[in-house]
Design a protein around this nucleic acid. Structure first.
Lengths: 246, 246
DNA sequence: GCGATCACTTGATCAAGATCAAAAAAGGCG
DNA sequence: CGCCTTTTTTGATCTTGATCAAGTGATCGC
């Protein structure tokens, strides 16, 4: 990562973009895009960059949610658990998504880093104060909520009505389109989730996920290296296996 | 509900709450709760009450979405379909929910009345103009989106990880808690959905839904009359069968 | 009130995916 | 490198829920 040092002439105290923000990869995504320079300064004074190891829990189901965060890099799993341990991943967040549930003190789900992840975290109080001041901020949060709602509903169709084969293909397609959101279906990428996580996302068992990946591989829809790296020769074909009309 | 007549001395004509709104059961729910009298007047001038028959489609997947609506009475199914006809209901909306997808021209799902339904519909343009004027309106829409997101994620856990028995019990519990939202778990209610719809909501077949209802009946968790009316002697017991910790 | 239609239930069989068990890769670390 | 742990794959068998097929009950129009 490269740090760009900005030489700001601060005659007027807070009119420039804070240094940390200017160099931030998520500068225009997440929640920061709509803020003015002075609001960004205010926010950045309370913000802390944090690196999160894969597998480490960022917030647990039922815990107090005192922080919001922008994901700078990495993938975060949002999951729900039944009392007997059955688990379902209900969402994946990619950089530069915003994490946190506005207007709620307690988290209804648990968030865990799936990969090496960098976040920029700030206390909920600061965000909630800014919502009152910056008119565009709530709009941005609203849009993100709507985006997550659309994704959740798409996934409900996958969970409720697709076969194991279609589920696995849908997952691969989802990752292929999110690794690098601008450029459509990526031809090659590393899976950010283990087989166990994929199973928890698809409502399947590890064994079934493994078998279906093997099946897709044998049919030539994908190639697999080191079990994490996936090559997709034909995005259209993957889509068709995912039950998506194209 | 009590109707409060406001005697405002606004020489200007539109300061009172419109008659149709004053008598409206959804007056404080839906989207209207946050509007001022004059905004309400503006909105009501473009609004139309409509009765919708069960089974009639209000908007189709992929169609242009030119209207928003408050549900005054009844239950609406939101569903998604695969090209081969497999269908998944991704949400149920109860009065006085708001229906409509802000900031999107095309509907990603289809909406269909499940029961006899009354709605108050207005053109998207009016709502989107009001969003700019009434600061509380977007907040209300945002809150509804977050509520729907929470519900969608809860249901993902149900779809992905629960058994057929737990799914059916979860559905009954959902209805029992939504028929009359204020008073917890209803002891007795009519199912707003047919077995086919229940199956589409739970990712099961009609036969499995029927068998599980029979099983719950034989175990004494519920009683059933005329196949639509359900009596729940013990809400806690139903919850336990639904896999919800209590 | 009586057949016709539609919604729901019940039964028999089947298959997709789960479970149980073990082997094979892939990392990690001394 | 070689030992150990963890992850992934593969195999055999079982179970849950799907499918196919009647049957029963409700509702509606006449």
């Amino acid at each position: 990562m490269q740090i760009v040092v900005e030489h700001s002439r601060k005659d007027i105290h807070n009119s420039d973009i804070p240094v940390v923000c200017a160099a931030c990869e998520a500068r225009h995504g997440g929640v920061c895009g709509t803020l003015t320079a002075s609001q960004l300064t205010e926010l950045s004074r309370h913000a802390a960059r944090r690196r999160v190891e894969p597998g480490s829990e960022m917030i647990g189901q039922g815990e107090a949610a005192n922080n919001y965060a922008n994901i700078i890099r990495g993938v975060v799993k949002l999951s729900k658990m039944l009392s007997d341990g059955r688990q379902q991943i209900v969402g994946l967040q990619f950089a530069p998504d915003f994490m946190g549930r506005p207007f709620m003190r307690e988290s209804a789900l648990s968030a865990e880093a799936a990969t090496d992840t960098d976040v920029c975290a700030f206390p909920r109080a600061v965000i909630e104060r800014l919502v009152g001041e910056a008119p565009g901020l709530e709009h941005r949060l609203h849009e993100q909520a709507l985006k997550e709602l659309d994704e959740a509903r798409d996934w409900m169709l996958t969970l409720g009505r697709k076969t194991a084969q279609e589920k696995v293909a849908s997952f691969l397609y989802l990752i292929a389109t999110h690794v690098d959101p601008e450029n459509g279906v990526a031809k090659e990428f590393d899976l950010p989730l283990s087989r166990a996580d994929i199973a928890d996302y698809l409502g399947l068992t590890i064994e079934t996920v493994s078998r279906q990946i093997t099946k897709l591989r044998k049919e030539g829809v994908i190639r697999v290296e080191n079990s994490r790296r996936v090559i997709v020769p034909d995005g259209r074909r993957l889509m068709r296996h995912a039950g998506i009309d194209c």
